[in-house]
Amino acid sequence: MSQVIISEVIGKVGLIHINRPEMMNVQNREVVDGFAAGVDAFVEKRKPVLKHH
């Protein structure tokens, strides 16, 4: 099973990717929770800058 949310930090930029192409990246509880966890991880690392694609 692939990850629904993929997050990474590049320099001072935090990237969060929704990885559900088969569902056209529709949001559900798992996506929302994963996104929130990604944001929390960035804040914990003191790198809260997010880049929107």
Rank of each mutant, 00 (worst) to 15 (best):
S2E: 08
V9Y: 04
F35N: 07
K47N: 08
E22A: 06
H53T: 05
R29S: 15
G38W: 08
Q3E: 14
H52F: 05
I6E: 00
L50Q: 10
G11L: 05
V9H: 08
G34E: 08
I10C: 00
H17A: 00
V4Q: 12
S7Y: 12
P21C: 02
N19C: 02
K45M: 06
I16F: 02
G38L: 04
R20C: 01
L50P: 13
S2F: 09
N28D: 15
M1L: 04
G38F: 02
A36V: 01
M23K: 15
R29M: 04
I6D: 11
E22I: 03
R29V: 11
V9I: 15
V31W: 15
E22T: 13
K51H: 13
I18N: 12
P21N: 07
A36R: 14
E44V: 05
V49Y: 08
D33A: 07
R20L: 07
I18K: 10
G14K: 01
M1H: 12
R29E: 15
I5F: 09
N25H: 15
G38K: 12
E44N: 11
L15T: 06
R29C: 06
G34F: 06
I18H: 07
K47E: 04
E22V: 02
N25L: 08
N28M: 03
V49T: 12
V26K: 08
E8G: 11
V39K: 12
I5H: 04
V39N: 03
P21L: 03
G14Q: 14
V43C: 04
K12R: 08
N28G: 12
K51Q: 10
R29G: 11
V4A: 07
K45Q: 14
M23E: 15
A37C: 02
I10S: 00
A37W: 09
P48V: 02
Q3I: 01
P21K: 15
K51Y: 13
I6F: 05
V31S: 10
I18V: 14
N19S: 01
D40N: 14
V13I: 04
